[in-house]
Nucleic acid binder design. Structure first.
Lengths: 119, 119
DNA sequence: TAAGTGTACTAACATACATAGTACAGTAAA
DNA sequence: TTTACTGTACTATGTATGTTAGTACACTTA
């Protein structure tokens, strides 16, 4: 099983699929130019609808994580530098927002990150 | 203007209200046992519906940030230790999730946090 | 009493999400 | 060519959530 859906998660299914696939691809679990599961087979495997999977794949293509060849299928992007860099920037942004709130609450950053990072 | 809504934000209005008020209260901008704006006046000020504000206040009461006296109004909680600790734990959890993803992407934690925290 | 408070409803509407079904064009292999 | 895949584009339907509107009632205070 490539992916696992969480129905207790409030996020929509298509987002769980695209986020999950992006993690696997950027982490190197799926190699560049390797074929993704087809829209229909992925839908079968996840017991969901082909339209939902297609929406997830469209988002991945928009992010540059995969590319599409009509009639052949979807494939892992050959050059992941751009989407990897973009994701890294997103992570930095999100962490910065959380640390900013911690500041406003008077929580020391080093104390908040205790045990998470080497000083 | 106590709060400012962002209609470009995808989060629902009631959540923006409760999150915004919680920030102000936990940051000490609103003092304990001080009265909150009434449901109706807050709705007027934000050009929204009293029901939406009430939903936000109900969530704040559930979190222990405010307390309600029927017929009198909503007041900032007199003891904010519990909700402040809870929020701190939530922030830690969210940061931990983001750092975990960074690990899976092969991004060094210290590099990711560059400029955000003293080493 | 009058005005303000929280609270609890119902109804209506818009939007997002998901499913089902159909159809069509492109690709690859038998 | 035929067959079986692929992606893509629709329509229709159902459901859940969010928001607004309106009404009503109990409580508190001046």
């Amino acid at each position: 099983m490539l992916l696992q859906l969480d129905y207790k998660d409030s996020r929509p299914i298509y987002e769980q699929i695209s986020d999950g696939c992006r993690k696997l691809i950027l982490a190197g679990v799926l190699a560049p130019d390797e074929p993704m599961p087809s829209v229909r087979s992925m839908a079968m495997e996840l017991s969901t609808n082909p339209n939902t999977v297609q929406k997830a794949y469209a988002e991945l293509e928009r992010q540059g994580v995969i590319y599409t060849v009509k009639g052949r299928g979807n494939f892992v992007s050959g050059d992941l530098k751009a989407p990897l860099g973009a994701r890294k920037a997103e992570l930095r942004e999100k962490i910065a927002m959380l640390l900013k709130e911690a500041d406003e609450l008077g929580i020391d950053r080093n104390e908040l990150l205790e045990g998470m990072v080497k000083k």
